[in-house]
């Protein structure tokens, strides 16, 4: 199934944009002098004119679904998920890679979605908190989600999606062999409510249970 987001920007200049993209995504074309429009954009002279050329196409898979999108290169993966695709489960805590709330998996690896541009993930697979449980209000939860509920591994719940994605990463990396190891390898996820010990218990329980994560 293909999920194409309707283009909510002005469609004028589509042709010119396509021409520009042909040039810019092929490095062989780099020796060509950038077009006047790009030069203008670089010098911030007339951004309204440059705006037509600012988007690039991007194909990636999110929670198992393929997407073909047109995005500005400056859009972070986090903002793409939240503001364009309405996948608001992934949270913005600090926007500078200092809290872990935006943790998602890219090709299975835990990653901060705020510190990466979406365009850098062409062809890659992204998993967010929305992609863990089976669909529907009663769908089966991921073992780490279940363990978080059982151990009260959250209070306000805001850092929780990032904690859970990070916890799965921690387990997959085999860094959950003792409470101290869990603590060290989860330290990139800040919980201001202080649910740390319950999260450690939740992760340790999943590790002990040996469920596939």
């Amino acid at each position: 199934m293909q999920h194409n987001e309707p283009d909510r920007n002005n469609n004028a200049g589509q042709e010119a944009r396509r021409d520009f993209l042909k040039q810019s995504t092929l490095l062989t074309a780099l020796s060509l002098t950038p077009s006047v429009v790009v030069q203008a954009a670089e010098k911030h002279l007339d951004e309204k004119a440059a705006a037509y050329f600012e988007q690039v196409t991007l194909k990636l898979t999110i929670n198992g679904k393929p997407y073909t999108l047109s995005v500005e290169p400056r859009v972070t993966l986090l903002d793409l998920l939240r503001e364009r695709l309405n996948l608001t489960g992934t949270k913005k805590g600090c926007d500078y890679g200092q809290c872990g709330a935006c943790t998602v998996h890219i090709d299975g690896r835990r990653t901060l979605s705020c510190l990466t541009f979406a365009v850098m993930h062409e062809g890659q697979a992204v998993t967010t908190i929305e992609g863990l449980a089976e669909a529907g209000p009663q769908g089966k939860l991921h073992p780490v989600q279940e363990a978080f509920i059982r151990h009260d591994g959250f209070q306000c719940g805001y850092c929780t999606p990032g904690q859970i994605m990070s916890a799965i990463g921690c387990l997959r990396e085999d860094r959950a062999n003792s409470p101290d190891e869990i603590r060290e390898y989860m330290s990139g996820n800040i919980c201001r409510c202080g649910a740390y010990n319950n999260i450690v218990d939740a992760i340790a329980e999943v590790k002990k249970g040996g469920q596939k994560v």
Binding site: S24, T25, L27, T28, L30, P34, V38, A41, E42, H44, A50, A51, E54, V56, E72, P73, R74, F117, V119, E122
Partner: peptide
């Protein structure tokens, strides 16, 4: 943040 031009390099030389 300005909307920079984004290019994907396929070889060290092209980069």
């Amino acid at each position: 943040m300005i909307n920079f031009q984004y290019l994907r390099a396929s070889s060290p030389k092209s980069a």
